[in-house]
């Protein structure tokens, strides 16, 4: 088994990701609107999408954005939401280790949920070209930026966002990601999620501001780690 990255493979990956990218434009638009409503400037919004390129963590950052920026909470929340990348990158390591380090980290730098899933499929079929990860990532990034730009333009033109329900985009997006992150909602995760919700509420009322996200994430993570897995082979 080996791996290679070339221009043709990257272009093929870009094209294969095009249908998914259309949806990403819509999500980017939602983020652009939400970010402007939360008081970010156009430049800040575009930089967030361009440099972070991770939807759920960007939406969650908006929730913490305010007159004082809680840097620790922002970093911890970003890490907790994107920690799944660690597992995704680890799962692709047997494939990517055959690439020169520069190419390997370039591919991982644009790794997102959709191109990762396609890359896992390619690797399992014995494909050696990692173009779907890199080219697909570039397609997703381009779509995310395009959508964010549209959202910034659109969002700047609305004066009363609450009237149109636009202030709830962030919560609805995160909830949709939560339900849809797995194809079948796993019952084994319901207990950690309930613990996380309870802990977050307690922290909201009894702990300093912005502690609730970290407290909930840790409480849920620990619960998930401690409950016995009924069928460990089924876990991906």
């Amino acid at each position: 088994m080996s791996a290679k990255l070339d221009a043709q493979g990257t272009l093929r990956g870009f094209k294969r990701m095009a249908p998914v990218s259309l949806f990403v434009v819509a999500f980017g638009l939602a983020f652009g609107v939400a970010a402007i409503q939360h008081g970010l400037s156009s430049l800040e919004t575009l930089l967030m999408s361009g440099l972070i390129f991770a939807g759920a963590s960007q939406f969650a950052a908006l929730e913490l954005w305010g007159p004082t920026l809680p840097l620790t909470a922002l970093v911890a929340t970003t890490f907790a939401i994107n920690a799944r990348h660690l597992l995704m990158g680890a799962s692709l390591y047997p494939w990517l280790r055959h690439l020169p380090p520069g190419q390997r980290y370039a591919c991982l730098g644009v790794m997102s949920d959709s191109n990762w899933a396609m890359a896992v499929g390619d690797h399992q079929r014995g494909e050696t070209n990692v173009g779907v990860l890199f080219g697909g990532g570039i397609a997703l990034w381009t779509a995310w930026m395009l959508g964010t730009c549209l959202g910034v333009v659109f969002g700047s033109g609305i004066s009363e966002p609450q009237r149109f329900g636009l202030d709830v985009i962030m919560g609805c997006f995160l909830l949709a990601m939560l339900v849809g992150s797995k194809h079948k909602p796993s019952l084994a995760l319901l207990l950690p999620w309930c613990v996380a919700g309870g802990a977050a509420l307690l922290a909201l009322y009894y702990l300093p501001p912005n502690a609730h996200v970290i407290v909930g994430a840790l409480a849920g993570g620990l619960t998930g780690m401690l409950i016995p897995q009924a069928n460990p082979q089924k876990e991906t």
């Binding site: 759920a56 969650a60 929730e63 929340t77 907790a80 939401i81 920690a83 799944r84 660690l86 597992l87 919560g171 995160l174 909830l175 990601m177 939560l178 992150s181 995760l189 950690p192 999620w193 613990v195 996380a196 919700g197 802990a199 977050a200 509420l201 609730h212 996200v213 970290i214 407290v215 909930g216 994430a217 840790l218 409480a219 849920g220 993570g221 620990l222 619960t223 998930g224 780690m225 876990e235």
Partner: peptide, 15 residues
């Protein structure tokens, strides 16, 4: 831990 934390952090924002 990471799998459970991924959803938990979203719950902690939404609730």
């Amino acid at each position: 831990f990471i799998n459970a934390m991924a959803g938990s952090v979203l719950v902690a924002v939404i609730v």
